[in-house]
Design a protein around this nucleic acid. Structure first.
Lengths: 309, 309
DNA sequence: CCGTGGATTTTTATATATAAGAGACAAAAA
DNA sequence: TTTTTGTCTCTTATATATAAAAATCCACGG
């Protein structure tokens, strides 16, 4: 009744660790594993027991030893390592992005539970998350209203994002050049330049860099509301990135250059320049999103599911 | 297994309606009641049946009639009209404000469920709300971290609030003088003046006026994130208002005057003046809160409950 | 004493169960 | 027809049940 996803995730993680050990090497103690995998010792013991049963590690007391290297088939499928709740969130976001729901549509928890193959408890608990995203509105004792990823949504999220990011830069430039955030900025800038040098082949790794830069800035605000909001932005973009991949290389190159300008402005500590560069970059990003929303991100609904309006 | 709080709330609401009818008057139809009370006809029917059983309305077909006026004892206690979830939220907030938790403390859902006398399902689902408030942090597969109503919390919430409110005023002053928000502002201003005239006896009704003014401004932003955030601010202040009632009359008078200045600035549509007045008012409010947090809002914990760190 | 591993107790995540409430349909009344 | 009410079905809110994971406790070997 609880799904053993923690076990499976830990097991896989453990296999990855072990792949690097030589056969016959002594394994870490249970508590060391527990720290390493960031799970309880209870789970570690379950993993080690399984490992022994699979003949990967010798079981028993006094000296656990690696017996053979893990094979690809030893791993659990990644799908099974997501908790029921996380799976609901992911599937829901995917349905949204595939256009399975229409703006204004009423969704009912019972039907979603059936369609997602989980219990209503899980649905209820995790759908609440999307309320916070501004994508759902709860009607007490009734269905949920899906508000849609509309141009309005994009405008509202970007308005707040811009306010927050500009505010965060004010804190950022107060910090000393050798403070951790500035160090991290150095690293990020270097990676930008490295990526730019290989943009033809590597352009797909831009989103991670984008996430790191903006998160760094938001986080130095030290304001939990700003940071929480960036989590929303980040998740949302993680999913929407796939919508429109036309001109991907070109768009990423432009964004990369805008980032470098933005970083340069930060270094200058000239608030006016920072505002200008930041705004410019966000305007570009906003336009890209708006374009995605305006035409094709949503496929024609394969079948109007989860409906009840 | 579901608590009939909707029924009880509707029943009470219905009694209040009926109090104004003359004996023998014909009652509205089921569907009319349904619209009036904003509940399903199913609930209305349950209420009407109860009403008949209590001898307040005649039952049966063709012409339901008021038979006697409801007495105070006919009403359900207000306490029972809160859904389990709403009750959890309220009680939790009260515990926080009474200092039953310490910042940094770990709360576990099982124990809270026992202490609040509800199921863990309800606790889990509604505690998530306070994550959004920035008061709790969820540790997957583990307890919740209570982050505390600290000076930091106050600073962060006010920073965002100021940003949002200033932004909202920019939309506000774009609207025509005869648009609904400005009409509402006229009404609110009039009520401010009325309150000011009777401040000696009526000062306790200031918080409602405060809520109306600020909500009006936030709502005209048309940005769901700004409006949602104001819900947080509003709930938080609703509870914290009770912390420190010293100088209440004086503080409310000052705030009232600040509001009038702020409204005047809005009418001038001079952004500079608006910013100044708004900031000034928020600074006062922030200082009041900071003072409450700094000393005694938290009583010495009567007993360290819900602990598990 | 320390860390290590075994066993036991609690707590969490999630499914299932069920009463209250919403909504749909049909018959009766107007 | 249009409205009102009776009946039935489906959904939501919430409690309970239970497997998985965490936390705690304990004994043992250094």
């Amino acid at each position: 009744m609880k799904g053993n996803t923690v076990f499976k995730r830990s097991y896989n993680q453990c296999l990855r660790q072990l792949a690097g050990h030589p056969i016959g090497a002594a394994l870490p103690s249970e508590s060391e594993f527990s720290q390493l995998l960031d799970v309880s010792r209870t789970t570690v013991r379950a993993v080690l027991a399984s490992l022994a049963k699979a003949g990967i590690a010798s079981g028993g007391v006094g000296g656990r030893v690696l017996q053979r290297h893990p094979l690809a088939t030893d791993y659990f499928p990644d799908m099974q390592t997501l908790s029921a709740g996380a799976a609901v969130e992911r599937r829901f976001m995917e349905w949204i992005l595939q256009g399975d729901f229409r703006a204004g549509q009423l969704l009912n928890a019972a039907e979603l539970a059936r369609q997602f193959g989980t219990s209503t408890t899980t649905i209820r608990e995790h759908l609440a998350q999307f309320q916070h995203f501004g994508l759902l509105e709860r009607r007490p004792n009734s269905a949920w209203l899906y508000k849609g990823v509309t141009p309005d949504f994009a405008a509202e999220i970007y308005d707040v994002r811009e306010m927050f990011e500009l505010r965060a830069t004010r804190n950022f430039i107060e910090l000393a050049n050798d403070s951790p955030p500035w160090r991290e900025l150095d690293v990020i800038e270097a990676e930008h330049r490295a990526l730019l040098a290989n943009i033809d082949t590597e352009y797909q790794s831009f989103p991670q860099l984008d996430e790191r830069l903006h998160r760094l800035i938001h986080e130095t605000s030290g304001n939990r509301f700003i940071i929480d909001f960036y989590d929303i932005v980040s998740t949302f973009f993680h999913y929407t990135y796939r919508w429109n991949r036309s001109d991907e290389k070109q768009r990423n190159t432009i964004a990369l250059l805008e980032h470098l300008d933005y970083i340069e402005a930060l270094r200058s500590r000239d608030q006016r320049a920072i505002d200008a560069r930041c705004r410019k970059h966000l305007r570009t990003a906003r336009a890209t999103l708006a374009r995605s929303i305006a035409f094709g991100p949503f496929r024609v609904p394969s079948s109007p599911v989860g409906v009840s309006s």
